[in-house]
Simulated assay, not measured.
Amino acid sequence: MNWDNIKVFLEIVKAGGLKKAALSLGIHQSSCARRINTLESEWGIKLKMC
């Protein structure tokens, strides 16, 4: 498990969206989405962040 993926997930929840989280973390929106997809695959669940 990559703790950076969890950090991204928590920032998305905190910021209220993928775009805001990406801006806050200084990374691209697509990178956030990839990290969430990775977590979902690893855990075998669909994450809801709203």
Rank of each mutant, 00 (worst) to 15 (best):
I12A: 01
L39F: 06
E42R: 14
N37W: 06
G16Q: 02
I27M: 09
I12L: 03
L25F: 06
K46T: 13
E11R: 01
I36V: 15
I6R: 03
R35I: 07
G26L: 09
R34V: 11
E42N: 13
I27N: 03
A22P: 00
A22E: 01
S41L: 14
L25Y: 04
I12H: 00
I45H: 03
K46G: 04
K48R: 13
L25W: 02
E40V: 03
W43N: 12
I6M: 08
V13C: 04
W43F: 14
L10W: 07
C32H: 01
S30G: 08
H28L: 09
H28M: 12
K48I: 15
N5E: 13
R34A: 06
M1N: 10
L23M: 14
K46R: 13
I12G: 00
R35F: 09
L10K: 09
M1T: 12
D4L: 11
E11W: 02
W3Q: 09
E11F: 03
S31K: 12
L39W: 05
K46E: 12
H28N: 15
S30M: 10
E11V: 06
A22W: 00
M49T: 15
C50P: 14
S24F: 06
F9N: 02
K19C: 11
S31W: 04
I12C: 01
R34Y: 12
L39C: 08
K14N: 08
I36T: 08
D4I: 11
A22F: 01
T38N: 13
L10E: 11
K19D: 13
G26N: 03
I27R: 02
L47F: 10
Q29D: 12
R35K: 14
K7S: 10
L47E: 04
K14L: 06
K14I: 05
G44R: 11
M49Q: 07
L18N: 01
E42P: 02
E40S: 05
E40N: 07
H28K: 14
A15F: 02
V13R: 12
R35S: 13
K48Q: 15
C50W: 14
Q29P: 02
L10R: 05
K46H: 09
L10Q: 06
K19A: 14
I27F: 06
L25T: 02
I6Y: 10
W43L: 15
C32A: 14
N5M: 06
G17E: 03
L47Q: 03
K20H: 10
C50M: 14
E11M: 09
A21T: 03
F9I: 12
R34H: 10
K20Y: 08
S31Q: 12
L18M: 07
A15W: 05
G26Y: 02
L39M: 10
E42W: 11
C32I: 13
I6H: 06
L23H: 08
